[in-house]
Computed example of a mutant assay.
Amino acid sequence: MRTFNHVGIVTDTIPTGAVYNEGLSVWLTDFSKSPNKIEFLKFEPGSCMPELVQKQGHIAYTVSSLEEELKGKKVIFGPAVCDEHLTIAFIEEEGISIELMEIK
Rank of each mutant, 00 (worst) to 15 (best):
M1N: 12
M1R: 12
R2E: 14
T3R: 15
N5F: 15
N5R: 15
H6S: 08
V7M: 09
G8C: 04
G8K: 03
I9N: 05
I9K: 14
T11D: 09
D12N: 15
D12P: 04
D12F: 11
D12A: 07
T13K: 12
I14H: 02
I14M: 08
G17N: 13
A18V: 05
A18M: 04
A18I: 01
Y20I: 05
Y20H: 11
E22W: 02
G23W: 06
S25T: 01
S25E: 10
V26A: 03
L28T: 00
L28H: 09
T29Y: 06
D30W: 12
F31H: 15
S32V: 09
S32Q: 15
P35H: 13
K37A: 14
K37W: 04
K37H: 15
K37C: 06
I38G: 02
E39Q: 13
E39Y: 04
F40D: 02
F40H: 11
L41P: 02
K42C: 15
K42I: 05
K42E: 12
E44L: 13
P45R: 01
P45E: 07
G46M: 02
G46I: 03
G46Y: 02
G46E: 04
S47M: 10
S47T: 14
S47G: 04
C48Y: 03
M49C: 14
M49V: 01
E51R: 13
E51H: 11
E51C: 02
E51I: 11
V53K: 11
Q54I: 09
Q54P: 13
K55S: 15
I59D: 01
T62S: 13
T62F: 11
V63L: 03
V63T: 05
V63G: 03
S64K: 15
S64Y: 07
L66W: 04
L66S: 07
E67C: 08
E67K: 14
L70P: 07
K71P: 08
K71T: 10
K73D: 04
K73F: 05
K74T: 14
V75L: 02
I76H: 10
F77N: 09
G78T: 09
P79T: 13
A80C: 15
V81C: 12
V81L: 13
V81G: 06
D83W: 01
E84F: 08
H85M: 12
H85G: 11
H85S: 14
T87I: 12
F90V: 10
F90I: 06
F90C: 04
I91G: 09
E93F: 03
E94I: 07
E94S: 15
G95A: 10
I96C: 02
I96D: 03
S97D: 03
I98Q: 01
I98S: 00
E99S: 02
E99L: 05
L100P: 03
L100G: 01
M101E: 11
